[in-house]
């Protein structure tokens, strides 16, 4: 059942965003779509940097238009970039975005600014403390319901420093079948694999060809077409609990291999985050993958694709999109 959350103030609205995005944005622009009296989709893009205002605004508007029900929106600028005018960061981009969103029949109701020290109505001289967001009713309610905005599977402190490398297996028809069978069993079994199983799985992930199968096998609603699987176009809603489980297992596998062999699992984690609609988290994992194994091609390519404002198909549709678990 869908629970009701009443947001009565700007602080409530600003508190709600980290719960949806899995963290407080930085150097970003967020568009919150809305209908009469209710909020819709949340879109976050990186701050525009050197991008021309009109092109930026058109791209962001086309992404926001994925919410076909939206009739209005809110803009939130997250930045510490106040070198020109502290009240109007990214002024040309915000203005262009306002025009484009209005043209797309999603006029902007309000614009807010959030820095690392305060928040304000965009263009005003006020400097409201961030504690107002933290102490808001919305934050308290969402936290009470079990939502944690900063839950992170990846914890580098848990990764071993002195671990023997795994031997990359010889790829045969039989080994592919065995790898997929073992991976399927682990995905369907609560808890974590034992160390020996984890090292065997981590070894299979080192082979690019087998890795591709193992990644695709996380999604049981796939249609067997590789391009669809990669881009998140599935037959129905994925088993998101299985996806969450796969992400945790991927981190477990990272614990049993040394640096230089963790990239396949980091890439899997990045892809899964992207499927969930979290492009920023995906980018982080993919960067870590390339740091772990410089030149790791899959992570580099996926990073480039995601950086071109690609949204996974499954994340666009509210019926199939990820639902974050609550405790």
């Amino acid at each position: 059942m869908t629970e009701k959350l009443t947001l009565t103030s700007p602080a409530d609205l600003l508190a709600y965003i980290p719960h949806l995005l899995g963290g407080t944005p930085t150097e970003s622009i967020v568009v919150l779509t809305a209908t009469a009296g209710a909020l819709g989709a949340t879109l976050r893009v990186d701050g525009p940097m050197d991008t021309a205002p009109l092109g930026f605004a058109q791209t962001v508007t086309s992404l926001a238009a994925q919410d076909e029900n939206a009739t209005a929106c809110y803009l939130i600028v997250y930045t510490d970039e106040t070198s020109t005018d502290a009240r109007f960061p990214y002024a040309a981009h915000v203005a262009a975005l306002g025009n484009e969103l209005a043209t797309a029949r999603m006029p902007v109701r309000k614009v807010y600014l959030v820095t690392s020290t305060h928040w304000a109505a965009y263009g005003s001289t006020e400097r409201n403390p961030l504690d107002q967001i933290k102490d808001s009713n919305a934050n308290a309610t969402l936290t009470f319901r079990g939502s944690a905005p900063n839950v992170d599977v990846y914890n580098p402190a848990l990764l071993g420093k002195w671990v023997e490398p795994v031997q990359v297996p010889v790829r045969t028809e039989e080994s592919i079948e065995e790898a997929r069978r073992e991976w399927g069993t682990v995905l369907e079994t609560p808890g974590m694999p034992d160390r020996e199983s984890a090292r065997q799985l981590a070894a299979w992930f080192q082979d690019n060809y087998i890795r591709d199968f193992l990644m695709a096998d996380v999604i049981t609603t796939n249609n067997g077409v590789i391009i669809d699987i990669l881009l998140g176009k599935f037959d129905g809603c994925p088993d998101w609990k299985r996806v969450d489980h796969a992400e945790i297992i991927a981190f477990e596998l990272m614990k049993v291999v040394p640096e230089g062999q963790r990239a396949p699992m980091l890439t899997l984690m990045g892809w899964l985050q992207w499927l969930k609609g979290y492009g920023k988290h995906a980018e982080r994992y993919l960067k870590l993958a390339v740091e772990d194994a410089p030149g790791y091609r899959f992570a580099e390519l996926l990073h480039e694709l995601i950086g071109r404002v690609y949204i996974a198909e499954v994340a666009k549709n509210q019926e199939t999109a990820y639902k974050r678990p609550t405790s």
Binding site: T42, V45, G277, K280, E283
Partner: peptide, 13 residues
């Protein structure tokens, strides 16, 4: 333009 986050409401607001 960099990665995009896109999520849907999980409560009625």
């Amino acid at each position: 333009l960099g990665p995009v986050d896109f999520t849907h409401p999980q409560e009625h607001h």
